[in-house]
Design a protein around this nucleic acid. Structure first.
Lengths: 200, 200
DNA sequence: CAACAGTGCAAGTAAGTACTTGCACTCGCG
DNA sequence: CGCGAGTGCAAGTACTTACTTGCACTGTTG
């Protein structure tokens, strides 16, 4: 009796991806609590019941979504050549970090307004930044030991990451339409390097 | 028939303040949407109906709350002595900004997950930072003109604010228990100043 | 004293939300 | 072909939430 010619079934995996994409979009805009399963289903072009058949409940869905978009960092791709020129290294690191944080900005911001019980996904979103922080600290320490920089490597790494964090996150509210990303990164790196380079 | 000896009536203003305090606390923890009027009333020690008698609806309540905690900046107290020592000026500015942003951190973070229709309160929370940005830019420009610093004042102000923003906001996820606020601020200012000070 | 503004309390309403269920359909695979 | 996994659809349940209402009470103010 029921004709259903319009909808062709999709693979299970494709459905998951569509749900993830929709969920992420809504989480970024309204936060975890403000996002409804009905909206996710609608935006994903999927029936609401399918959400629950896949993930069981809303919390598990969103956890899976965040984990899906926040995989572990590719450390190999991130590690700079430790023998290279500092300025070039930092520039490469800054661009890598900026791109990566930019692509996760919405999820990272959403973790700021999460309740404690949701910290599983929140921790996942911050895993990558935490690892990068460590790598950066090691890098700074090596350069200090070589006598190229001077100061506390922990604070140096913190400051360097902070400038990028502020750029990415702050851009949502503070707009600088007259400057390009490269201009800002270059300026920040120059000031930073002038500030921490060892004087002769 | 009903005895009501336990509750002594409070002034209308005191009730408002109690509601604001409770609302702010909950907004910080759960976000705007995650906060229920029932919770606010309970935490404020006030009947839920009183909330609506005061503010009409939940949105108006929260808008009023954010506006109440985000008054215009006291520019006079913020303006540094333009003839003073740069390092001392920046230290004073940094401490002022840090304290101020720290006290508003929860509300500022909440604005990141707001929907567009709620931007009224969101704009209010960002009014102060925007004004400070402008003051800072002017300050940097003046010092550049005097030949004490070199570089683009806009980017300098942006970088300086960014370090503080990153400290305050990032502290929610990135912990540095081994360092005091003063240590970090001093380090950041030193690097910044070394980086932008005019070389002879 | 008398009016009144502000509040507490209890009950209720309408809408939204997470989640379930039973059934029909369809595609791919053995 | 036939079966099963994955899905759409429609209806429904139990719960939460914003918001209302009528009434009793109390401190303040004229």
């Amino acid at each position: 009796m029921l004709q259903q010619e319009t909808h062709s079934p999709r693979s299970s995996e494709e459905t998951r991806l569509r749900i993830f994409a929709a969920a992420r979009q809504l989480i970024a805009k309204k936060g975890r609590r403000g996002t409804t399963t009905r909206e996710i289903a609608e935006l994903a072009g999927v029936n609401e019941a399918t959400l629950f058949r896949h993930f069981g409940n809303k919390d598990a869905l969103i956890d899976a979504c965040v984990l899906h978009y926040c995989p572990a960092v590719d450390l190999q791709a991130f590690l700079p050549n430790r023998d290279g020129n500092i300025e070039e290294d930092l520039r490469a690191i800054a661009h890598f970090m900026t791109e990566r944080m930019e692509s996760l900005r919405d999820l990272i911001l959403a973790t700021f307004v999460e309740e404690e019980q949701w910290s599983a996904a929140g921790d996942a979103a911050w895993r990558a930044p935490a690892m990068i922080k460590q790598i950066l600290t090691d890098y700074m320490a090596a350069r200090v030991q070589r006598g190229e920089l001077e100061g506390d490597p922990v604070l140096m790494a913190r400051l360097f990451m902070g400038t990028i964090f502020a750029y990415v996150v702050g851009r949502k509210r503070m707009h600088y339409p007259d400057y390009t990303l490269d201009q800002i990164i270059d300026f920040n790196i120059n000031v930073f390097l002038n500030g921490v380079r060892k004087k002769n």
